[in-house]
Simulated assay, not measured.
Amino acid sequence: MIFLGIDGGGSKTTCLVGDENSILGNGSAGPSNVIRVGEVETRASLNNAIQQACGAARVRPAEIHRTCVGLSGAARPEISAVARRLLSEMVSGEVEIVGDTTITLAAAFGNGPGVIVIAGTGSIAYGRNTAGETMRAGGWGFAISDEGSGHWIGRAAVTAAMRSLDENGKSPLLERILKTWKLESRDELVVAANATLPPDFATLVPLVLAASDAGDVTACTVLESAGAELARVAKIVISRLFQQEPKPRVAMSGGVFQNSVLVREHFYKSLRSAFAGVVICDDIVDPVRGALELARKGK
């Protein structure tokens, strides 16, 4: 039988096609978070990623027996209904829609206990203990939550750059931001950042990483704060789920962790200061592997 796992994220979509034991093909495309990018772009991203994966595996979408897709906000009926309808146009067989936390936890720990912290465009911490109880922290949306995420980092970088300008009369980080967003002045940045439809702050993450690597103190401080904020939501889940567990396991997932050593270092430091016995997995978890495994198992 042929199975399909999909990780539909706010920045990209990844797919794996496999049989009962092996990965046969993979594909990737643009974002498929329907709330962020709309139905048209979501359909295109899903279709492109599926076609790539099926092409690499030399199978037709009609041969797929079961699909599992992980999406942020999948618990909301309006999101899961759109995803199910779109996928029914593209693949055959059963389709299971679950949260991105579900596939990430499966990729990290299988059916076992542990805590995962996702830091991509958005962020969230999610865990399961030995009794099967689950708990989340964060991930309540860009406007009020998602601390340490790509969006949060971009917005924090703009805030810090403007503060630096106020204090010192100049800000090298601000110049990088203006160039990236193709703006001419501070005043144009103020208008763009405060628009009714706000800019995509997550697009600033690469420049924050580059500025940090170049020694920009403001950028470094933003990334250090992101690591501490991500540790904070992990601590909430650990303290509520693992009160009797001296060595809880924690895994990381998402592009922020993948691309920033500084974020990881401060995440480790802050988490271990609160839980000395915590076991932090070194490898960054690839959620799509969990989606494929759940597709293999079925409901």
Rank of each mutant, 00 (worst) to 15 (best):
A210S: 15
S164P: 04
L165D: 10
S185N: 10
V222E: 02
K170H: 15
K235R: 10
K170I: 03
A193C: 09
G148Q: 09
V237K: 01
D216Q: 01
L165W: 12
S239H: 07
G215A: 02
A161K: 04
P172D: 07
E188C: 03
G227V: 00
L174K: 02
D146I: 01
A211I: 02
V205W: 01
V208P: 00
G150C: 06
I177T: 08
A193K: 02
A157P: 11
G169K: 09
L165H: 12
A228M: 15
T159S: 13
T203C: 11
A219K: 04
Q243E: 15
K182Q: 14
A157W: 12
Q243L: 15
G215N: 04
I153Q: 08
E188D: 14
K235H: 09
A210Q: 13
K182V: 10
E245I: 11
D187H: 12
G148R: 08
I236F: 04
I238K: 00
M162D: 03
P198H: 08
A160E: 14
V208D: 07
S164M: 11
E147W: 09
L241S: 05
E175L: 11
D213K: 15
A210V: 03
E245G: 04
E245V: 13
T180P: 04
L241Y: 10
I238M: 09
G227R: 00
V158Y: 10
A231G: 15
E245M: 09
F242Y: 09
S239G: 11
L183M: 15
A228S: 12
P198F: 10
I177R: 04
V250G: 07
L183T: 12
T196S: 14
A219F: 00
S164H: 13
E229F: 10
D213A: 15
P246W: 12
R232W: 06
A251H: 09
A193P: 02
T221V: 09
A161H: 04
S225W: 07
V222T: 01
V208T: 02
G150F: 12
V190T: 14
D146F: 06
G227A: 09
V222P: 01
D216Y: 03
V222C: 06
A202S: 15
I153R: 01
G215H: 03
D200P: 06
D146P: 08
G215R: 05
L204M: 13
P198V: 05
A211V: 05
I236T: 09
D146G: 10
G154Q: 10
E229W: 03
V237D: 01
L197I: 14
T203V: 15
R163P: 11
L173G: 05
L178M: 11
V208Y: 03
Q243A: 15
P199W: 05
S239W: 03
G227P: 01
E245R: 07
Q243R: 14
